[in-house]
Amino acid sequence: MQKMEAQKTIPSRRDEQQSAALVWIVTPLLATGAAYAPVHAAARSSSLTPWIMPLLLSAAFAVLVSLLKAATWPAAAIGFLVCTILAQQPGFGALLALVVLFLLTFAATRFGRSKKELQRLAEGRSGRRAAQIVANLGVAALCASMGWYAGCIAALSEAAADTVSSEIGQAVGGQAWLITSLRRVPGGTDGGISVAGTATGVAAAALVVAAGTMHPAFRPDALLIFAAACAGLLFDSVLGATVERIGWLGNDLVNFSSTLFAAMIAVMWLLFRGRIL
């Protein structure tokens, strides 16, 4: 969920400290995950040719999102690490899911922008910050680096669903309800859900799951991953209506927690079944 500054109940200093801690903790893990495979190959005197294309694709993606002002340069640098990890996954399905996520969120963020700016709900024109990239994509990249493909796609799908539901819900307007009490609340309220926002969020999750499970090996788990993403979307709203609403957690930690929740549902279910993809 992306909320306007005036609606935040968390003290700004605490919010900034939480976001900074998230970046400083997760970014080194992402750097390690991105570098591990090529460094390991170099240590064994293996050819580095297989890693050239992922690096080039990741660099191009980072430059593109920065030029489009979809992310700041520090955020684009972290996006490069995420993209490098996802590009190393089999069949490029994770990378395709990331591209679909980017296209969906890019379009949703700009949909009805004038209306959202008047209501002070629009994202800054400089693009997403580093903490937002870590919050939305960090879990997916970490899951991919550990070989938990289903968790990776579930996290990417939840991130797409969350952003699209929030942006479209704010742009379309209409009635919103607090998920914990079903009490009517203004659009943009932490934990508020609307019909338009929820429907478009679920559709976004489905598209990302479809992109990430095109390979026959992953297709049997598509429904599970989709369900995990939808559960993560609901979990995000519950956190928004509770710990975010009372000022304990900022939006970045809520988003990170929601993608983690979606990923862990997928991973734990596959572990229960005795396999992990």
Rank of each mutant, 00 (worst) to 15 (best):
L29C: 13
L103K: 07
L137W: 05
S46M: 13
L68V: 09
Q89L: 14
V39L: 15
L55G: 00
I10M: 10
S66M: 14
G93F: 08
C143V: 00
L96F: 11
V134H: 00
E5C: 09
V139E: 04
V39Q: 07
G124E: 15
A42E: 05
A87T: 03
T105Q: 01
F102R: 01
L22P: 03
K115H: 14
V23K: 03
G124M: 13
M4Y: 12
L98W: 01
A60R: 03
A62P: 05
S46L: 14
A62M: 09
E123A: 07
I10W: 10
L67H: 12
A131W: 02
T105S: 09
K3W: 13
T49W: 15
P28H: 00
A62I: 09
L57D: 07
S45R: 07
A130I: 07
R13F: 15
Y36V: 11
I10A: 09
P50G: 04
K3N: 11
P90Y: 02
S19A: 15
F61N: 00
A107L: 10
T27C: 10
P28K: 00
G79D: 08
A60M: 12
A140H: 05
T105N: 05
Q17V: 14
G93K: 02
A6N: 13
A6F: 15
Y36K: 10
P90N: 02
S126I: 09
A131G: 05
V100M: 09
W24Y: 10
P50H: 05
V63N: 01
S46D: 15
A70K: 04
L95R: 03
L64H: 03
M4R: 11
M146E: 14
A70Q: 08
C83I: 07
T72P: 07
A35N: 05
A59T: 06
Q89V: 11
F106K: 01
Q88T: 03
A122N: 02
T109H: 04
T109K: 05
G93Y: 07
A31D: 06
W51H: 06
E117T: 07
C143A: 12
I85H: 04
C83H: 07
A43Q: 10
L30N: 00
E117F: 11
N136F: 03
L64A: 09
